[in-house]
């Protein structure tokens, strides 16, 4: 698969504060990536570096295999960062025209993109008259203007009301379904869980996890079991080679496997030992629980 962005051993210090520590990341075409992390974890700084607005301290990054300069590459990238930045005295359409001039594309896409974000009827209104949600949608339209290879969104739903969040999320889903590569930075976990296939978890500038969303979940999948005789069940489970840890909780046993064990396998193992379960569930931690565990552990 084609590599769009490659980050290697990136560091950024703001004076004594180490904002980004040794971040490496490779973004392949067609995937949807999430960068998760609490506020101040270095998400925006990392994105700022690859977007040419923050200077790196050390490390390297390259766009599209490194054949072109960053600012040329950025013409093929659509990005919005934290809050929408436009000229307040220009109308929506004029602002997009300016972006077209910078990107070196013609004006033909403006109507279409305004339509996608539902701002076509407000195209002649000045930017300063827009609500935050509309500003954010205009930013998305602007980022889509050149039909980018990759869309970078930094906290796109920050500060929006529930309707606004829903609208933005729907737009993102539509774009993702068209096969556009997306990099989404957020501290809202369900947002990432719903749209992303890959995830990078940052805390204090360091990578805690990097891989697929499913991979992150299966790491800590666990079983809830119940039988008439809990003690017998516990003893039997302890004999299972892949069960790492057993806890008792509210009349149930929680068993944490080491590797991947599926439920029917475990059931068969217990039946062979004459234990019949009244309750067996294989559960995964939600991304939120995972995230909190990851960020608290260290």
């Amino acid at each position: 698969m084609e590599t769009i962005l490659k980050i290697e051993n990136l560091y950024k210090n703001f004076g004594l504060v180490k904002a980004v520590k040794n971040v490496s990341l490779e973004i392949k075409k067609g995937n949807v990536y999430g960068i998760l992390g609490p506020n101040g974890s270095g998400k925006s700084t990392t994105l700022g570096i690859v977007l040419n607005v923050v200077n790196k301290t050390s490390g390297s990054y390259s766009w599209f295999g490194g054949q072109m300069e960053t600012h040329e590459a950025l013409k093929k990238v659509g990005a919005i960062i934290e809050r929408p930045n436009f000229y307040p005295y220009m109308t929506a359409e004029q602002n997009l025209q300016l972006v077209c001039k910078i990107k070196g594309t013609n004006y033909s896409k403006i109507q279409e993109k305004l339509e996608i974000v539902g701002l076509l009827d407000r195209k002649d209104s000045k930017f300063r008259t827009f609500s935050l949600g509309m500003k954010q949608r205009l930013a998305i339209a602007s980022a889509l203007l050149n039909d980018p290879e990759i869309l970078i969104l930094d906290e796109p739903t920050n500060g929006l009301d529930p309707q606004g969040i829903r609208q933005i999320r729907d737009i993102i889903k539509t774009i993702a379904s068209h096969g556009t590569t997306i990099l989404l930075a957020s501290h809202l976990l369900d947002e990432v869980e719903k749209v992303c296939s890959h995830v990078l978890v940052l805390r204090k500038g360091e990578i805690l996890y990097s891989g697929t969303v499913d991979g992150m979940n299966s790491q800590d999948g666990f079983f809830e079991l119940q039988a008439e005789n809990l003690q017998e069940l516990k003893n039997a489970l302890a004999q299972h080679p892949s069960i790492d840890k057993i806890e008792e909780e509210e009349g149930r046993l929680i068993a944490y496997p080491k590797g991947s064990v599926n439920a029917s396998e475990l059931n068969k193992f217990l039946i062979e030992r004459n234990i019949f379960l009244s309750h067996l569930v294989k559960r995964k931690h939600s991304l939120e629980e995972q995230f909190l565990q990851l960020t608290n552990n260290k």
Binding site: L51, N52, V53, E69, T70, H71, E72, A73, L74, K75, V77, A79, I81, R83, N85, F86, Y87, P88, V99, I102, K103, G104, S142
Partner: peptide
Amino acid sequence: NEYTYGTLKQNLIDGLSK
């Protein structure tokens, strides 16, 4: 104004070099 509006940042992100 480019600083106060934050548009300098946006211009650079959109692909204008410094």
